[in-house]
């Protein structure tokens, strides 16, 4: 198999999968809650990139119909609009999740005075 086109042709998936597990690793291994939330955002963003990269077509343009094409439309000319729509929704969901996550982190901070998970666990056990 021809190695170079193979790597170039699939690097979008490689990048997204790398980000996906980078975010997940941060969420599992970090003890600071804000770092976990940052990991969460990386995690969700990787999926957004994954979808968007699936909508790409070589030699195609934005999915906004050009005046000269109004008679006969060739689908090859335009990017796939569906993943864009789906990811608009996913972005909004990610923002909403981030808002709630920060709210909860703020509440945790007000109760324990710290955002370090091990210190919180310690405070719970000694209570």
């Amino acid at each position: 198999m021809d190695a170079i086109p193979y790597f170039i042709g699939k690097y979008n998936y490689w990048g997204c999968i790398f980000l996906f597990f980078l975010g997940m690793y941060a969420m599992i291994s970090k003890t600071n809650l804000i770092k976990k939330i940052i990991g969460l955002n990386i995690f969700q963003t990787s999926i957004i990139l994954f979808f968007i990269s699936a909508s790409f077509k070589h030699d195609a343009t934005l999915p906004i119909l050009m005046e000269e094409h109004k008679g006969a439309i060739d689908p090859v000319m335009y990017l796939n609009p569906l993943p864009h729509v789906l990811m608009l929704t996913a972005i909004v969901v990610a923002v909403a999740t981030l808002g709630v996550a920060l709210t909860l982190a703020l509440k945790v901070y007000r109760i324990y005075g710290t955002l370090e998970e091990d210190e919180i666990n310690h405070a719970i056990q000694s209570h």
Binding site: K10, A54, S55, H58, P63, P75, L82
Partner: peptide
Amino acid sequence: MWGDPASPASTHVSPYFIENAY
């Protein structure tokens, strides 16, 4: 492959949107 216009994602449902949306 990245940007392949013949991938299933670009050939099954999406042409309908592109052709009929306007």
